[in-house]
């Protein structure tokens, strides 16, 4: 069957509920899915944040210090480290007054990938290219 492309669309803010975080961890799980698939089969998620989903992504989070839980920032860094495509809607960031330089990176972990702040048209393209779209 080869590669199956998935688009994960996160519309809820981080920390408000659980599912916005579960989108990230479910996307990272693509790293280990091959143990359950036939040779040559893969799953490739693209993680997209739109609407209120762009909230709670900024760097400098202290969730571990204050609540003893892994921050969204750390999860995002792990996404980049495992080469996931992470798209954040440019228009929605602008709507909330969040600048692109506030988006975290995982340079210090040696990640090649970076968050891509992309126009919605690019996120729409990711949805069109995907076999399945999962809304979180």
């Amino acid at each position: 069957m080869g590669d199956v492309k998935l688009a994960y669309i996160v519309q809820k803010p981080q920390y408000k509920g659980e599912t916005s975080r579960l989108a990230i961890t479910h996307a990272i799980a693509y790293q280990t899915v091959e143990i359950l698939l036939d040779d040559g089969d893969t799953v490739t998620p693209t993680l997209c944040f739109i609407g209120e989903g762009v909230l709670g992504l900024q760097k400098g989070q202290k969730a571990m210090d204050f609540y003893g839980i892994t921050s969204t920032e750390t999860h995002i860094k792990n996404c980049l480290l495992v080469d996931l495509d992470v798209l954040v809607c440019k228009e929605d960031l602008a709507k909330y007054g969040i600048t692109e330089d506030l988006m975290p990176d995982a340079d210090e972990m040696g990640a090649d990938k970076k968050i891509r702040v992309a126009p919605f048209s690019e996120i729409q393209k990711a949805m069109e290219d995907a076999k399945h779209i999962l809304f979180f």
Binding site: M1, V4, L6, H26, A29, Y30, T32, V33, I35, L36, L37, D41, V43, P45, H132
Partner: peptide, 8 residues
């Protein structure tokens, strides 16, 4: 990954 494998 069980979920992703079933999705596949």
């Amino acid at each position: 990954h069980w979920y992703l494998a079933k999705i596949h």
